[in-house]
Computed example of a mutant assay.
Amino acid sequence: MSDKRILVVDDEEIVRYSLKNILAAQGFEVDDVPSAEEALKLLYVRSYHLVLTDLVLEGMGGLDLLENVKVISPRTLVIVITGYGSLKTAVKALRLGVYDYLLKPCDEEELIIRVRRALEMQAYGREQKRLQELNAIAKTAVTLSDRINTPLNIILGNIEMLRLNPELEGSGKVQDSLQVMETQIFAIKRVMEKLAGLTNAQTKRYPVLRDYEIIDLTSEGASE
């Protein structure tokens, strides 16, 4: 069963029943309501990938519903269903941000094609946004790695100088402390190398951070 949720809004029960059955048969999770007011109540408590609504409804109309959906759930796409007489209104709805429209009576095959196309475009848009966010994180990681490694290398150099200092060579506690400092610094450097490795400037491929990778990063120093 698909994880995509669709809300059908139409004041004609037979139309709602038909649309719901067609979409449910495709594996979608479908809710149906007879009015825009009922639709808004659901939108406040549930998230939907797509709203399929008639433009002409009793009470609040389809265009008003569209405006509210854009405020309550900006990522939810809207497809409107209209009769031939309200085609001009459908064009207006498209200008207001409706993803697509269908003419009544809906052809079953065309309905499925339009719905799948909308959901595929929505998923593509979300994936692109995810990649952009990962790209930004990776670039920040590379910058941090460069800025942090320089002072760490300076500290390592000073640790080595202290270790070779004749006055400190006989002090076991000092040497042990220097060893601990050096170990922790190398642990930090390995963490920064992992963060920098999240991006590959040549292939432009950005891997997904999985739980085990995050654990590795945060526990690097603890295992030393």
Rank of each mutant, 00 (worst) to 15 (best):
I155L: 02
S171Q: 13
S177W: 06
L152K: 04
P151L: 06
T76N: 09
N135E: 09
G85E: 13
S2K: 13
T76I: 01
V9Q: 01
Q26E: 15
R114I: 06
C106Q: 12
N200K: 09
G59I: 07
G221D: 10
Y17G: 09
Y48C: 10
E182V: 01
E193D: 15
V71Y: 11
V33Y: 08
P105E: 03
E167I: 13
L57E: 04
D146S: 07
Q128D: 01
K70N: 10
Y212A: 02
Y206A: 05
V174R: 01
P74F: 06
L77R: 03
Q175H: 07
A141N: 14
S219I: 10
A90Q: 03
Y101R: 08
K204Y: 04
V30A: 01
I112W: 02
I22V: 15
I159Q: 00
R210L: 08
V115K: 01
K204L: 10
L7K: 00
G172N: 12
A90K: 04
Y44E: 10
K41M: 10
Y124Q: 14
E37K: 10
V9E: 04
L96G: 06
L134T: 03
Q122A: 14
T199W: 00
V45N: 05
P151H: 03
P34A: 02
R117Q: 12
S86G: 01
K189N: 13
R114N: 12
N68Y: 08
K20D: 02
L66K: 06
T82Y: 05
T53S: 15
I81T: 02
G197Q: 11
L55Y: 06
L94P: 08
I154E: 07
T89P: 00
S35F: 04
V15Q: 10
V15A: 06
E110R: 14
R205I: 13
A138F: 05
V51T: 10
A141T: 11
L63N: 06
D64E: 15
I79N: 00
S47V: 12
G61S: 12
L168H: 08
F186Q: 15
E160D: 05
M121Q: 13
F28M: 05
D107Y: 07
D64L: 00
K41F: 10
D54E: 08
Y99P: 01
G97R: 04
K173T: 14
L103M: 13
E169C: 00
E108T: 15
G221T: 15
E120Y: 07
Y99E: 09
Q184G: 03
Y84L: 05
E220M: 15
K4R: 14
A118Y: 05
I137V: 10
A196S: 15
R130H: 03
L152M: 14
V9W: 00
L144T: 13
I148G: 03
A90D: 00
E67K: 15
V33E: 02
G197F: 09
V56C: 00
A201G: 11
S223W: 08
V71W: 05
I22N: 07
Y44P: 04
S35Q: 04
Q175M: 11
I79C: 05
M60F: 08
I113T: 12
